[in-house]
């Protein structure tokens, strides 16, 4: 696979991956495992699990890995560059025009509405993250509703509360709200604490 084809393939992926890196994984499987057959299903499964436990966004991790298998170091760089290129073009233009027109009534109105949506997303993110840390699964609201209305709560089988994770989360909230410790330091300390108590 030539470096240009590699770049163009990932450029197209960058153009259609609305919603972030997770959307990319099925696209990669369709292109490189099914259509071209240049990466085995096994190797791809391993790639996804590696991409999740190594630093960096999953999308860029996967692009780097696929690029490396096709063209070594250059391939890795070219695949990642191709993937982010459409975002760079579209994103820069969008920010440029938002800045330019931010006093226009229409843009003001759009931003007014969008900020509320973004704030709601952020609170929703709290719920999602609770389901990935303090609880072992996403929070089942139906069961909670049953609990409140005095019916049998019937929580799903794998759903459990993790006290160590709850402690890490609670301590983080208190430390960030009350002290001037940096967030990165807290993340590193939590990784160590997690390795020791969250097994």
């Amino acid at each position: 696979m030539s470096l240009f084809t590699l770049f163009w393939t990932f450029f197209k992926f960058g153009l259609v991956s609305f919603g972030g890196g997770y959307v990319l994984v099925p696209l990669l499987i369709a292109e490189f495992v099914d259509r071209r057959g240049i990466i085995s299903t096994d190797a791809f499964g391993n790639l996804v699990s590696i991409a999740q436990v190594t630093p960096g966004p999953i999308g860029i991790n996967s692009a780097t890995y696929v690029g490396f298998t096709q063209g070594g170091f250059c391939g890795a760089v070219i695949a990642s560059t191709g993937l982010v290129m459409p975002s760079i073009l579209i994103g820069s233009l969008a920010v440029y025009y938002i800045n330019k027109w931010k006093e226009k009534l229409l843009v003001k109105g759009i931003l007014k509405g969008v900020r509320s949506a973004a704030l709601a997303m952020l609170f929703y993110a709290v719920v999602i993250f609770l389901g990935m840390s303090v609880f072992t699964q996403s929070i089942p609201f139906r069961s909670l509703w049953n609990l409140i209305t005095f019916h049998a709560p019937d929580f799903p089988a794998g759903f459990a509360f993790s006290l160590p994770a709850f402690l890490i989360c609670g301590v983080t909230v208190v430390l960030i709200a009350k002290t001037r410790l940096s967030m990165t330091l807290l993340i590193v300390l939590s990784a160590i604490a997690g390795a020791l108590i969250c097994r």
Binding site: L122, V126, F129, S133, S162, V173, L186
Partner: peptide
């Protein structure tokens, strides 16, 4: 895997405070 749970728990707290 434990370290990842720890980091996610910490990030949960950070998002709560930021929100």
């Amino acid at each position: 895997l434990g370290a990842f749970v720890g980091v996610r728990a910490c990030i949960t707290g950070l998002i709560i405070v930021t929100a």
